[in-house]
Amino acid sequence: MIGATLVGIATSAIRLATPYLYAAIGEAIGQLSGVLNLGVDGIMLMGAFTGFYVTLLTGHPALGLLAAMATGASMGLLMAFISVTLQAEQGISGIGLYLFGLGLSTLLFGMTVGTVKTVSGFPQAPIPGLSRIPILGEILFSHNPLVYGAFALVPLAWFVLNKTPLGLKLRAAGQNPLAADSLGVDVIRVRYVAVVLGGVLSGIAGASLSIALLNVFQQNMTNGMGFIAVALVYFGGWRPLGVLAGAMLFSTVNAIQVWLQVQGVKIPSDFALMMPYVITILVLASMAKRRIHAPAALNKPFERGGE
């Protein structure tokens, strides 16, 4: 019984963590290059809508996913244009992007689909062999493809950020853009790549809700997840593994509070719901000694020959 419970909670946590992982790793990539994007939630909503709509039209969640990625890329491009080319204040552009995505996704949903519908999104795809492993098989290997993708993204992102020239350029652009520029790194281009990539991942994050985990679309269905994702970037100290730790902590506590309520444990639901937020802060505060520095040029526009 206890075993089954723990398996249930762990499986639940992994599902809950999926959208956060995509969005937070995307955000971390953008921030490492020096761009703070607070518009993640808006991109997620646009990704969730287009993914849903295309899946509804075609019946192929894979096409829906592509559409969500393309939408995410366009939203990322918009953000990059405003914050990199036009050098706008990043925090505020992000809020603008969020409102734009929130409004537009709702508007388009109302105009095209109009009412709540369900789609058949990505089905569960237990990995042959691995899913048979007792306990771990059920927790880790019995999900739908987008869940695996989110967890595969962690080592992939780590590799790209730490072991490839692109990763190096990216961090240089965020750490010391002037020096990077003098070494021949095209800072503007690198930031564009990073922000668009972040947009694509946020788009997938949205699609993971609308065509994999929930298979519905509703206005504002992300309910502020994008902002939590931004917070998780700080929790993770801009490292994919740290982001994973943060996303899993937050989601596990969330899964536990859901489970407690489902079991009928008599605590006021509001306190149960508060737990993930309180515990995330407390855990981070208890690690006060860690030495992590934000990318030095985060939130600072770059201008060649500028000040």
Binding site: L86, F100, G103
Partner: peptide, 23 residues
């Protein structure tokens, strides 16, 4: 008009104004 249009417009205004700063 759907209220969502107004939210989207609000976002556009923020984006355009903040984008025009550089000019």
């Amino acid at each position: 008009v759907p209220s969502a249009l107004i939210v989207a417009l609000n976002g556009l205004i923020v984006l355009f104004v903040v984008g025009s700063e550089v000019i």
